[in-house]
């Protein structure tokens, strides 16, 4: 079997149309990441997430000629995963979303660093509050927060994944953070200036 380890995702994507192994290598690189991402943006079962993941890769394969080499492959495949997840749950009309417990710590670590919360606060209490706030946020805010603080994507990548201007990404993240800060404030948590 060919070794693709020195190939970039983008060059593998270009090879995929004619080389199944190259596509297999891409699947190998992204299956865990995308599975985790799908789990994060929905409350779907393991089986459902696997179905969505499989649909994502099959769609990526069919649409591989539509891949824009000016985009990163990662953004492109995340976009497909995001859209497939939305389509999958469209029938249910509501996309169930909660923040998974295992993600809570990472979320907390990243988001608190971003809003300058001092270190000596009760992190457990904050985590609980964060989960409450996040579950009350609409999907449009939650999607950007998950990509920013759990998937650790840049504004540019989020813009490419969600197909929206960078400015809108920034606005949504700021609004979500403001809401978060409001909660923090009303809960008497001290913020650095």
């Amino acid at each position: 079997m060919t070794d693709y380890s020195d190939q970039t995702d983008e060059s593998l994507a270009l090879l995929s149309a004619t080389d199944h192994d190259a596509f297999g290598a891409l699947v190998g690189r992204y299956e865990q990441k995308l599975y985790r991402y799908i789990r994060r943006i929905t409350d779907a079962s393991h089986e459902e997430c696997e179905d969505i993941l499989q649909e994502t890769f099959l769609k990526a394969y069919r649409y591989v000629h539509n891949f824009d080499p000016l985009l990163s492959f990662s953004s492109w495949i995340y976009r497909i995963a995001h859209n497939e997840t939305i389509s999958h749950f469209r029938k249910r009309s509501v996309r169930p979303q909660t923040i998974k417990e295992e993600d809570g710590t990472l979320y907390l670590q990243n988001i608190t660093a971003d809003i300058n919360i001092v270190d000596d606060i009760d992190r457990e209490a904050l985590q609980q509050q964060l989960q409450e706030v996040l579950s009350s946020l609409g999907p449009k805010y939650k999607d950007v927060l998950i990509l920013r603080y759990l998937e650790e994507k840049s504004y540019q990548e989020i813009s490419d994944i969600l197909k929206m201007p960078i400015k809108t990404v920034g606005t949504r993240i700021n609004r979500a953070k403001k809401q978060l800060q409001e909660i923090v404030k009303t809960s008497n948590i001290i913020l650095t200036p």
Binding site: H20, F23, F57, L58, R62, Y63, H65
Partner: peptide, 24 residues
Amino acid sequence: DIKQKILDTIEEKQITPIPAWKFL
């Protein structure tokens, strides 16, 4: 594993990429 499952599905259902000219 999911990777093999996907590759098998492509093989079995004879899925092929949509031609580039359609996107162009």
